[in-house]
Amino acid sequence: MAFLDLNSINTYYGRSHILFDVSLSIEKGEVVSLIGRNGAGKSTTFRSIIGLTPPQTGEVIFKGERISGLRAFRICRKGVGFVPEDRRCFPDLTVRDNLEVAARREKEVDSPWTVDRIYALFPRLQEREKNLGSQLSGGEQQMLTIARTLMTNPEVLLLDEPSEGLAPLIVSLLADMILRIRKEGVTVLLAEQNLHFCAKVSDRAFVIDKGSVKFAGTMKELLANDEIKEKYLAV
């Protein structure tokens, strides 16, 4: 059994059907990409896993335990961390407070994240420790939301379009960050539009389009598959 399993989930917003029988499976220690264009269903998949928009049918299994149907805060406490695409730092809290409010599950893991360990990984955040969330640049906000979620000591991290809207230099920095997070033993599921970014950090990929999975395989296979790339990713 895989570490995180989605068994044909169907998710709706109100009356509109967004995800159609989406199944994914991720092994412990992997970085897996979920690639698709705007509106393909990447964010909805993540919201389904974390329980903010629970699936109506199908199930999400994490470490052998069914987590779909639990409320979001319970799922988080089971070890699933979610970084939303729109970088929702708490604007009125300082960088340090943003990190501190998220700290939990320190006893469940061997070497829990501390603010100091976070600062070692993201030195920029230490420099801006006393600034409010609303005073950060886009790239800094992205780092802060990732760091904040790490403070919940997740075993699997859901990263929703971290490279979006960031300058190329920052994106490259971000890729290093993800690889280092993985080295710390965190499994990562990455939603992206940016194929080359995915190629740099992940081993396996799923391609999603119009709410259903169109491709599953290794990153190499995907890069070699021009048909899938043209049809679902390129212009």
Binding site: P168, L195, A234
Partner: peptide, 18 residues
């Protein structure tokens, strides 16, 4: 469809090793 800039915008820039 033929524009390389557009292709890059959608697929992301080739990331050079930093």
């Amino acid at each position: 469809k033929a524009n390389p800039e557009v292709r890059k915008a959608y697929l992301g820039e080739e990331i050079t090793e930093s």
